[in-house]
Amino acid sequence: MEQSLNEIREQFHRDLDAITTAESLVAIRDKYLGRKSGLIAASKKNIGKLGADERAEFGRQVNELSREVETEIERLDVEISARNEEAALLRERVDVTLPGTGASGGHLHPITLVRQRIEDIFVSMGYSVEDGPEIETPFYNFDALNIPPSHPARDSADTFYVSDTLALRTQTSNVQIHTMERQKPPLRVIAPGRVFRRDTPDPTHNPMFFQVEGLNVDRHITMADLKGTLTKFVEMMFGVNLRTRFRPSYFPFTEPSAEVDFSCYVCDGAGCRVCKGTGWIELGGSGMVHPNVLETVGIDPEEFSGFAFGLGIDRMAALMYGIDDIRLLYENDVRFLEQFA
């Protein structure tokens, strides 16, 4: 038997309240709005029994009900989709505080970090990076550097030997000599590399360490150029507005010679733990290339002059990173290495 439109409306609202999924919504749509078997369509069959004046009113009511059903289904459809989306997103929720995955990056050795920075600074000042043998003849390691045969540095207590005629280089100054033999001035080179001295490892010594040697030979090079160049270097390496101090010193391969200090970048010269209360930090040795050295490689010291300097990379790394036991530099303990980047 046919239902009245009001009965259909009531039944529709009951059905609607009961559904939760988009699929059942489709079934409901078919149930009420289906073109042939839908309840609303079915109710239209009764239209013939009505009088002509009632027909118009009945048609209006049928349309109203159809629109109502349509709107309600639409509204619920949107609501259900939104709910579904929300639920789906909730299911995909992760604990964003868990650590990220993938291989974590490695770390450059502090020596490399400092060495690369030194190279970058000097290359930007027009220097070329040069290299030479780590096992060296006494000529290149000592004689050519004006170190006399009786000098204690040659002693087997201080220098490692692999034969009577070959030693582990005690400084990268040997590269100076090789370079000057190969090329004529003007010359601007730095030579970073491993050097060896016969020191038993302790917190401030290692039998192997890294040094960078610098050399600038040209027609009018003076100590003022040495001072200006190293001051520029200190500013680029440790910070602007730092001051340098050149103290007279002695090295066989330079004359005049100077020990270079720079004002402490931590306390600006007031005295602190880093500079051991002196306000100054030692940078390295330097001086004007000794005429005997120039003559040995066939450069006329009357025509050319030059400056040279030697800086300890390990010492600089220890200073920059506050490493109080430099033996750690060559033990390759991952807990040490992973602190650098």
């Binding site: 290359v123 601007r188 200006g228 007279p248 005049p256």
Partner: peptide, 27 residues
């Protein structure tokens, strides 16, 4: 020269950067 310079005082020596027309190079 060193004897004279150290008694005049290294601090009296100016700071200059030498002129250079070449380019630097890495190893």
């Amino acid at each position: 020269v060193e004897e004279v310079a150290r008694h005049i005082g290294y601090e009296k020596i100016a700071l200059t950067v030498p002129e250079w027309s070449g380019t630097g190079a890495y190893l």
